[in-house]
């Protein structure tokens, strides 16, 4: 497998490969998100307790899941970048971080907009929301660190180290927050989302999760291609690419 993978450690090859993959992800994102949104907003029945406000679930849960998935992707990329000293992997870390941060932000805002009618408050120090907020802080730290270095190779390595430190810390943070919130408010929170969900509500949710996943991949690929272009801007193949049209 290594032999097969190796050519893709070259910038140009992976630029071309990602260019080939990108339309597929964009297509998958558009189709699944249209199906998921129409189904979720128009056809899924209203929740018997929460009425139509539950429809926020179709963006809240996928965004939260993909925010976590983005971090896992980054951690894998960071590990590869540090252990095998592959620059492209560090670039993928830098490419994923802003996407993950935006998804975390979406999860937080939609969680607040859902919480207001359900809990009566925009913000409740619920374990999941709190750890999502801390995840956003960590994302911002990684992005800030990456942008602070003018040498992007060093920036990639520094961001990779911080990502790995964060991945060791995240489970600890999560469990400490869960523990803390059960101690402080416990049963006062009405749990939602977790209980059994009717299949006609679940299907659009699954489709939306696929949509957000594909969107995460598409955006990461686009940003990854940008990173490659920046760092290889002196290479002849980039010059040829720029003059040869918009491919």
């Amino acid at each position: 497998m290594w032999k097969w993978l190796h050519p893709y450690a070259k910038a140009q090859k992976s630029y071309q490969l990602s260019g080939k993959l990108l339309p597929w992800f964009v297509g998958l994102t558009t189709t699944t998100s249209i199906i998921g949104l129409v189904w979720g907003l128009l056809f899924a029945p209203p929740d018997y307790q929460q009425g139509d406000s539950f429809r926020i679930i179709y963006i809240h849960v996928p965004a939260a899941m993909m925010a976590m998935a983005a971090y896992v992707m980054m951690a894998i990329g960071a590990f590869i970048a540090l252990v095998w000293q592959i620059r492209l992997a560090a670039m993928s870390v830098a490419a994923t971080a802003p996407v993950g941060a935006v998804f975390t932000f979406i999860a937080l805002v939609t969680g607040a907009a859902w919480g207001k009618p359900m809990w009566g408050a925009w913000w409740v120090w619920d374990a999941r929301l709190t750890s999502e907020l801390i995840l956003l802080f960590i994302y911002m730290g990684i992005i800030g660190l990456y942008n602070a270095f003018s040498d992007k190779v060093l920036a990639g390595r520094a961001a990779s180290i911080l990502t790995l430190v964060g991945v060791i810390n995240l489970p600890i943070i999560h469990y400490s927050v869960v523990w803390w919130s059960t101690l402080h408010q416990g049963a006062t929170i009405i749990k939602f989302g977790k209980p059994l969900i009717a299949p006609e509500m679940l299907w659009p949710l699954l489709i939306m999760i696929v949509a957000f996943g594909a969107f995460l991949c598409a955006l990461t690929l686009m940003r990854f291609r940008n990173e490659i272009l920046i760092r290889e801007s002196h290479r002849p193949w980039v010059c040829a690419l720029v003059t040869g049209g918009d491919k």
């Binding site: 009425g51 139509d52 406000s53 963006i59 935006v102 805002v109 859902w114």
Partner: peptide, 17 residues
């Protein structure tokens, strides 16, 4: 169903970002 503000706020901000 009466939740227009919250639902469209959530969808709107998500879309915008």
């Amino acid at each position: 169903g009466g939740y227009a503000f919250y639902v469209w706020l959530a969808y709107g901000i998500a879309m915008l970002s």
